[in-house]
Simulated assay, not measured.
Amino acid sequence: MTPNVAIVVPAYRRFADLTESEQISWRQSTDVYQTYPFVLVCPDSLDASGYVSAVLAQPVRLERFADTYFSGTASYNKLMMSLDFFQRLAGYEYFLLCQLDVFVFRDDLPAWCAKCYSYVGPPWFAGFEPPLAEARLWAVGNGGFSLRKVADCLRVLHARQPIFSWPTLLRECFAPGLGAGLRRLPAYLRRGLQANQTHHARNDYAGQEDIFWSLICADRFAWYTVPTPTEALEFGFDYHPTLMLELNGGRLPMGFHAWDRHRNAFWTKLFKEQGYSLNNPSCGL
């Protein structure tokens, strides 16, 4: 049975202006997930006419947002934590966020949706991008290729839980020293009382949206569930993919985030088997 899940692809450039690897990502995603609805999240001003695919069972749906949300990482993070974004997807039980630096190998969505997790993404290593010799799995996980349960995200955005504890806020306040901390204290007190909430109207979180939706939400809400980092290897790879492949018993995941960053002979051969020819593979990994 096909789950009620949409494939959500953020895009802020015309298709003709995408890099070769980004165009490959789009074509592979539409091929593998062709029976699912595709939602292109894009700026109001974008000419999205190039984002079409003959293999899709239905036309690509456009969800347009203010251009300012696509001006940089910080504004994109705000979009991905906004009530408006999730309300527009409320007709779906889940959505798979599939950025244009993702390469998908197969459709495992029915199995992952059946697990009923609130959030799934490729696992992180401690330190996010540590040297290979020091890499150890830490937490779930990267938002660029992630499966999210819409109702759970909306529940978070209507809940009033603190994002950071008072001790954490005070440590941050006084980190520059006592004098600077005392001058900053009124602002931090206002922040703790008026903002610093998971509720959409008072959410002042300024960090990466995937850290909010994975680490913070899983810590603040007992009902909000994520897989273990080891289980998430079956879902996706990100940094040090050859090590992740080893940790996953030599099995490929459903998808691979930031694949263009990791071009080498192994991945070039693998992608050739998928029908793509990659230019200039690097030697490292």
Rank of each mutant, 00 (worst) to 15 (best):
96 L>I: 05
112 W>Q: 06
42 C>Y: 03
82 S>F: 04
141 G>P: 12
102 V>F: 00
39 V>H: 03
52 V>W: 04
86 F>V: 07
48 A>G: 07
48 A>I: 03
59 P>H: 09
106 R>I: 10
150 V>R: 00
79 L>E: 06
134 E>F: 06
62 L>F: 06
43 P>Q: 11
118 S>E: 03
26 W>G: 00
131 P>G: 00
69 Y>R: 02
117 Y>Q: 07
146 S>R: 13
78 K>Q: 14
29 S>H: 02
149 K>N: 12
116 C>N: 15
116 C>V: 03
126 A>K: 12
125 F>K: 06
116 C>Y: 05
86 F>S: 07
47 D>V: 08
64 R>I: 05
35 T>M: 11
155 R>I: 00
52 V>C: 11
88 R>H: 15
139 A>W: 15
88 R>D: 12
82 S>P: 09
111 A>R: 10
57 A>D: 14
79 L>G: 07
75 S>A: 15
49 S>M: 03
28 Q>W: 05
62 L>S: 06
129 E>R: 11
46 L>G: 11
30 T>M: 02
28 Q>D: 03
55 V>T: 14
55 V>M: 08
133 A>D: 15
121 G>R: 06
45 S>K: 13
74 A>Y: 10
25 S>T: 13
60 V>H: 08
36 Y>I: 01
31 D>N: 14
148 R>A: 06
38 F>C: 07
124 W>Q: 10
70 F>K: 06
101 D>G: 00
33 Y>R: 05
108 D>N: 13
127 G>W: 02
56 L>Y: 05
100 L>Y: 00
119 Y>D: 01
75 S>V: 01
140 V>K: 05
149 K>C: 11
125 F>V: 02
90 A>M: 08
29 S>V: 06
35 T>W: 03
83 L>V: 03
107 D>G: 07
76 Y>Q: 13
31 D>Y: 14
103 F>H: 11
138 W>G: 10
71 S>F: 03
145 F>V: 05
135 A>K: 08
96 L>Q: 08
81 M>Q: 12
50 G>C: 05
36 Y>W: 07
154 L>K: 07
52 V>N: 09
30 T>A: 12
76 Y>F: 15
44 D>A: 11
117 Y>K: 02
134 E>W: 00
48 A>W: 08
53 S>H: 04
100 L>K: 00
143 G>T: 02
97 L>A: 02
134 E>H: 10
106 R>A: 13
59 P>A: 05
113 C>Y: 02
137 L>V: 11
86 F>E: 06
144 G>F: 11
87 Q>T: 08
31 D>T: 14
87 Q>P: 01
68 T>K: 09
140 V>R: 07
80 M>N: 13
115 K>E: 14
29 S>L: 09
145 F>W: 10
65 F>K: 09
53 S>T: 08
97 L>R: 10
38 F>N: 12
